[in-house]
């Protein structure tokens, strides 16, 4: 085993506990309402629902690994979607088809992702070069990005996209929904990045001890800029999925996803103070959330109770994590428990 990270006891790791939670939730829901929860329709509808916020959670995750946070993910995804959609409506229109449509969609996606990358670069610069705390930097820049999207559209939805846009969010390939494939690629990509590339290892090292990273001559500024650029690109991709599923783009789509993304990342065992976290944890957190909310839907429980249960799950998991084993990973917590 060439595992570079410190060894964790299998059962004390947050991921193992999460896996148990995900399975328990799945089994409970399946038992409570087998014919509906396990139905193919439910499976597909779940599969189409989660990728958009799950991708945002991945964007959040990479910044949290450095001990930062990206509160601008939703802003970036809407801004890039609005720009992409505007290009499509201005130059292509709803009636376009064939090669020309594919070309314009390709151009729009390329530009949208570049927008995400630039927005992330902007975050990286104000954090790395100007030294703003990430939480404030991205709170401010998130408002700017959202604001630009509002200013561009006057606050209304951009409608009239070419028919091909719908493919990304609504079609399946060999029976697997396209957004799920996309999410899988992005999650695997990030996981690979963290475990098997120099960049990924540096992210974790920086998150563990930023000062030591500086003394070890890591290029900290470039590292942070790259991290926030990756976050920006992932956010932009989430924006494409949202645009495709809504068949439109708007400045305030998915505004509830911001806190959800933070919640999933933390639930997934990402140490909010940086340095520790595994993508598998985030994936398990996403699945738990989705099983839970779909299951509750089946059981005719109101939509709003999802929020309630998410919150309870988050705090429950945090209590379990802090009470055992996780303390080591929270080495930099300003609030240590103890004290008399």
């Amino acid at each position: 085993m060439n595992n570079l990270s410190p060894k964790n006891n299998m059962f004390s790791s947050p991921e193992a506990r999460l896996a148990v939670i995900a399975i328990v939730v799945f089994i409970t829901m399946a038992a409570l309402s087998p014919e509906r929860f396990l139905s193919p329709q439910n499976m597909t509808s779940m599969a189409f629902q989660f990728p958009e916020f799950a991708i945002l959670a991945l964007a959040m995750t990479i910044t949290m690994l450095t001990g930062g946070i990206d509160l601008s993910v939703v802003g970036i995804s809407n801004l890039s979607a609005v720009i992409g959609a505007t290009i499509l409506t201005q130059f292509a229109g709803p009636d376009i088809a064939g090669i020309e449509m594919a070309m314009w969609i390709g151009i729009a996606i390329a530009i949208s992702i570049s927008v995400g990358m630039l927005a992330g670069l902007f975050n990286g610069i104000i954090i790395a070069i100007f030294g703003l705390p990430p939480i404030l930097a991205t709170l401010g820049s998130g408002l700017v990005f959202t604001g630009l999207a509002v200013a561009l559209t006057g606050g209304s939805a951009v409608l009239g996209l070419p028919s091909g846009v719908a493919w990304l969010g609504n079609e399946t390939v060999f029976g697997v929904p396209v957004p799920v494939i996309l999410f899988a690629i992005l999650a695997l990509g990030l996981s690979f990045l963290l475990a098997r590339t120099s960049f990924g290892l540096k992210i974790q090292m920086y998150g563990t001890n930023p000062l030591a990273a500086q003394f070890a001559a890591l290029d900290v500024n470039r590292l942070l800029m790259k991290v926030y650029m990756v976050s920006g690109v992932y956010s932009a991709i989430a924006g494409m999925v949202i645009m495709s599923r809504a068949n439109s783009a708007k400045a305030d789509y998915g505004s509830s996803y911001l806190l959800l993304a933070v919640l999933i990342a933390v639930l997934g065992g990402i140490n909010p103070y940086g340095g520790y976290g595994r993508i598998i944890g985030v994936v398990l957190a996403v699945l738990s959330m989705q099983f839970l909310s779909s299951g509750l839907n089946m059981l005719q429980v109101s939509n709003f109770s999802r929020e309630l249960i998410w919150g309870m799950l988050l705090i429950f998991v945090m209590i379990v994590n802090t009470q055992k084993g996780f303390k080591l990973n929270l080495g930099k917590t300003p609030q240590t428990k103890s004290g008399k």
Partner: peptide
């Protein structure tokens, strides 16, 4: 002894839910 951001993020959902 939980981190304040995470607790209040959680209770935000709980109270509203």
């Amino acid at each position: 002894g939980l981190p304040t951001l995470i607790v209040t993020l959680g209770t935000l959902s709980i109270y509203r839910g």
